[in-house]
């Protein structure tokens, strides 16, 4: 429903630490939802139903479960794994994480680390709020005519993969996936006229 909401799971046995880090994150102004999870094995139950952006783990919880943790990482390929460190751990154990939060870190340091990571992820995709590119508008026009990906590819002389990737970007930028929804979008934004649509 909220595709830009950042989902954060926290696996931390200490309530004090859990409440503390949750509070810092909730007050950061980031659009987040926090889930508390009791164990690494509980997290694996969610591999199909939930998608998390960040999982914060006390390294203690994976110390003797390196194998289980490795499997888990495969179930959640897009998650950023964050270690919540307040004891000494072997560097090798800590190398399992994308970045670490130390108990002595101040609020800014912690939030900076999250912001950096979020920017990295966003750079990979095209940013929202952007206008559709000329090519995307071409694809959109053909979508509203009810053409299949294959037909669009043939018409524009591009590969089906490119069409699919354009469609993905269009949906991301407009927030609309269905053909009829996109048609209404195109009419509202004067990309096609009502007559074009009626002529289909």
């Amino acid at each position: 429903m909220n595709k830009h909401k950042i989902h954060i799971a926290i696996i931390e046995p200490s309530s004090l630490v859990y409440e503390g880090i949750s509070n810092i994150l909730l007050k950061s102004g980031m659009y987040i939802q926090i889930f508390r999870i009791d164990s690494v094995s509980e997290l694996s139950h969610y591999s199909k139903s939930e998608s998390f952006d960040f999982v914060l783990i006390n390294p203690m919880c994976i110390q003797n479960k390196i194998r289980e943790f490795a499997t888990l990482r495969k179930c959640f390929p897009d998650v950023c794994w964050v270690g919540l460190v307040y004891n000494f751990y072997e560097p090798q154990l800590l190398s399992n994480f994308n970045f670490l939060i130390q108990i002595t870190d101040n609020t800014d340091t912690i939030l900076d680390a999250f912001h950096r990571q979020i920017h990295l992820q966003e750079d990979g995709q095209s940013m929202e709020h952007e206008q559709l590119s000329e090519r995307e508008v071409d694809v959109l026009r053909l979508i509203t005519q009810g053409l299949s990906n294959k037909e669009i590819a043939d018409k524009l002389n591009i590969s089906i993969h490119t069409v699919i990737s354009h469609r993905k970007n269009i949906s991301q930028k407009t927030g609309i996936k269905s053909q009829s929804g996109l048609t209404i979008y195109a009419i509202s934004n004067k990309i096609i006229s009502l007559e074009d649509f009626a002529g289909v």
């Binding site: 927030g175 609309i176 996936k177 509202s188």
Partner: peptide, 19 residues
């Protein structure tokens, strides 16, 4: 599967695009 994404389309249209 489809039921959910169509509702989201509708909300986006009403909020952002329909004049």
């Amino acid at each position: 599967s489809d039921i959910e994404s169509t509702l989201s389309d509708l909300k986006n249209l009403i909020l952002k695009h329909i004049p």
